[in-house]
């Protein structure tokens, strides 16, 4: 099954997705949560914005 990453529109294919499953987008590395499996829909998993640099 296919869905588009909400962040960068990359096509993400999953064979047996589970609701609530977390998957990482291969293009932009965003963490995505399966919010529905029929059809497959993905939403950005909440992650706090850690200050990664200076």
């Amino acid at each position: 099954m296919n869905a588009n990453c909400p962040e960068c529109d990359a096509v993400i294919t999953m064979d047996k997705p589970l609701k609530g499953e977390i998957v990482v987008c291969p293009d932009c590395g965003a963490e995505l949560e399966v919010t529905d499996t029929n059809p497959l829909t993905l939403a950005l998993a909440p992650e706090e914005e850690e200050d990664w640099g200076e």
Binding site: E7, C8, D27, C28, G29, A30, E31, E47, W52, G53
Partner: peptide, 11 residues
């Protein structure tokens, strides 16, 4: 190569 990540130290 496209390098634009939301996490990690090589963003």
């Amino acid at each position: 190569r496209i390098v634009k990540d939301k996490t990690g130290i090589h963003r």
